[in-house]
Design a protein around this nucleic acid. Structure first.
Length: 282
DNA sequence: CGCCAGGTGCTGA
DNA sequence: TCAGCACATGGC
């Protein structure tokens, strides 16, 4: 068990904002993975308490994964450029963009297309149970995320039986592409956003939106601005409720929010979804 | 039951 | 460049 200083951070907002699908809350702790290492974390008095099953989980890795090493005030002031995003920042201050594993992010967001978060979580859980490695931490039992090589050799029929639907052939083909080395996924963070996105778009089942999610959540390209149905709704604010194509919304957002547009996107996404769920309960 | 979900690929203007 | 369509499935 160790602690990491975590000022200006919200574990809750970060883990529930739809950028990751595999953290579970149980008995006051969040259980999840840093790469293939199982960990449990909780936020307490401005610091993060961490317990891990293996020594590969160092304070430095935790700081990196949760993006505790970025200049957060500078990022926020760069995107705090209008009233809507300002409200979102005030409401969910502490939300950060995680630095997730590239392959897991790619596979997860292929499953995420035209889908809802509950089912995305279920599909990924099925995948991990079927082809991941079992791990345990205290009372928690989980499964690591399967390697691309493992998924590449699974039949489309088997993947469909896990509930993937028409995404099954996409995931299988993309797993092969990564396993073959045709897409050096972990190297995409060293090239620029445009080149990384171009490379990702070569995968089956990866279009503009999924490529932007992978660039942002898995490759540290903070200018990426994924647009899904929720972001379309959020962005009507800027166009007086007119309908605009996603390509034009994307162009506008990148100019409007700048090099950390992805942070603005995540704030707005979480903000509009939260508004909907609060209203739904009332 | 009908509607919705962190869309993509394909086709035809 | 853009609209229109099929595509699987489970939650609500």
């Amino acid at each position: 068990m160790f602690e990491v200083p975590a000022a200006d951070f919200s574990l809750q907002a970060t883990l529930t904002s739809g950028q990751t699908f595999r953290w579970t809350f149980h008995g006051e702790w969040w259980y999840g993975f840093l790469g293939s290492s199982v960990v449990k974390v909780r936020q307490d008095d401005g610091c993060l308490k961490v317990e891990a099953a293996d020594a590969a989980v160092t304070p430095e890795r935790v700081r990196r994964y949760f993006a505790l090493d970025v200049d957060y005030p500078a990022i926020l002031s760069s995107i705090d450029v209008d009233m809507q995003v300002h409200h979102a920042i005030v409401q969910h201050r502490g939300l950060r963009i995680l630095r997730q594993d590239g392959w897991e992010t790619l596979a997860s967001f292929i499953c995420a297309s035209f889908n809802n978060i509950k089912r995305i979580e279920g599909m990924i859980d099925h995948l991990c149970q079927a082809y991941g490695r079992p791990v345990a931490l205290n009372g928690f039992r989980g499964f690591s995320f399967p390697a691309p090589e493992s998924i590449a050799e699974v039949s489309e029929r088997r993947l469909r039986s896990l509930g993937l639907g028409y995404r099954a052939p996409y995931l299988r083909q993309t797993a092969r592409t990564v396993a073959d080395g045709a897409l050096p996924i972990e190297q995409l963070r060293r090239i620029d956003y445009e080149a990384a996105k171009r490379a990702l778009l070569g995968c089956e089942g990866v279009g503009d939106k999924v490529a932007d999610c992978v660039a942002l959540f898995g490759c540290e390209h903070y200018e990426a601005f994924p647009i899904d149905v929720w972001m379309e709704r959020a962005m009507r604010y800027y166009f007086r409720h007119r309908t605009i194509t996603r390509a034009r919304l994307h162009d506008y957002a990148r100019r409007h929010f700048g090099p950390y547009a992805g942070y603005a996107q995540q704030y707005l996404y979480h903000y509009v979804r939260q508004l909907r769920s609060v209203r739904g309960r009332a």
